[in-house]
């Protein structure tokens, strides 16, 4: 998975006073500006292809068509209850509420899965380096399972959890857990030996070395790993939802496929793209907050 750092013009030393405020506003404003230009260009190209008749609106409806009839698209976003046999098709939430329920459900699955995977894999990774026996017992299995595609776990998710939130969360977790555990171990191994030696000469115990030196030292790298895996989490959650969790953005895409509704596909893709974008933005903010000690532009993507 590759990731392009957005051009933020970071690394510029902050001047003082009004200049500093201006510079502070300028940075994000510039980034937002270029984002709009970039997306706008892409949409324009698409519209142009439609105008000259190269993009068939039945197969590749341009943005003004699939974004123009949001009301119509919204009715396809449905919650599980409405699909249940015997339920009144007009009962339950309105189409717009349904869109939000769908978005929040998928987001929640991504967040819970990501959180569980992060906490457990960091814990396991540290434990593997802390206790040799832990490494002997678990690392071979983890390394063996790491390259298995999450798709292969899909039947397992359904066998174990049926349908609902649990299998989707499980899928996100399983897709991230192995690689994040290995990434944690790599991060621990690359901690500057001087840091550890300093702590040792000052009489730090093994536990203190892990909690006071290794943990803060690996945090920047772990947050980058987390950000990269965020996109992976979104990909996996769609697959899980598409195959029978009940409802969610992936299920909407599957519905669009089955009903031959390309407009709905693109509409959902826009939603997913925006969600991923804002998630990444949020994590980047969290990164800045948490990693206050890093000089601007160092040790992180973007």
């Amino acid at each position: 998975m590759t990731y392009q750092a957005t051009g933020e013009g970071g690394g510029v030393a902050a001047p003082s006073g009004i200049d500093a405020v201006l510079a502070w506003v300028k940075g994000p404003a510039k980034a937002v500006g270029w984002t709009i230009v970039s997306v706008g260009l892409f949409a324009l190209l698409w519209e142009f292809l439609w105008l000259v008749g190269l993009a068939d609106p039945k197969l590749l409806p341009p943005p003004h068509i699939f974004m123009g009839n949001i009301t119509e698209q919204a009715q396809y976003f449905n919650t599980a209850q409405r699909w249940q046999i015997g339920a009144d098709p007009n009962a339950g939430p309105t189409p717009y509420e349904a869109v939000w329920i769908t978005i929040i459900s998928s987001t929640m699955r991504v967040l819970v899965g990501l959180f569980l995977a992060a906490v457990i894999s960091i814990t396991v990774g540290i434990a593997i380096r802390y206790w040799k026996m832990m490494e002997n017992l678990t690392l071979p299995t983890i390394t063996l399972l790491a390259p298995v595609s999450p798709i292969a776990w899909l039947p397992v998710a359904i066998f174990l959890f049926g349908i609902g939130n649990a299998p989707a969360i499980f899928m996100v977790f399983i897709a991230l857990f192995f690689t994040m555990t290995l990434a944690t171990i790599t991060q621990i191994d690359s901690v500057n030996q001087n840091y550890i030696n300093v702590a040792r000469t000052m009489g730090a115990s093994k536990r203190q070395i892990y909690t006071r030196v290794i943990l803060p030292a690996i945090l920047p790298g772990l947050l980058v790993v987390l950000r990269l895996n965020l996109f992976g989490a979104w990909m996996v959650v769609l697959i899980a939802e598409a195959t029978g969790v009940g409802y969610g953005l992936g299920q909407v895409i599957m519905l669009a496929r089955n009903t031959f509704n390309p407009g709905l596909v693109f509409f959902t893709i826009v939603i997913i793209g925006l969600l991923g974008f804002f998630f990444d933005f949020g994590l980047r903010m969290a990164q800045k907050r948490l990693l206050y000690w890093l000089p601007k532009g160092a040790g992180s993507l973007g």
């Binding site: 500057n192 001087n194 840091y195 030696n197 300093v198 040792r200 000469t201 000052m202 009489g203 030196v213 803060p216 030292a217 000690w293 890093l294």
Partner: peptide, 16 residues
């Protein structure tokens, strides 16, 4: 290692 024997390294070894 003992605290009364302090080691100072070539490279920065301060915790950032």
């Amino acid at each position: 290692p003992a605290p009364d024997r302090s080691l100072i390294f070539q490279e920065t070894s301060l915790f950032p």
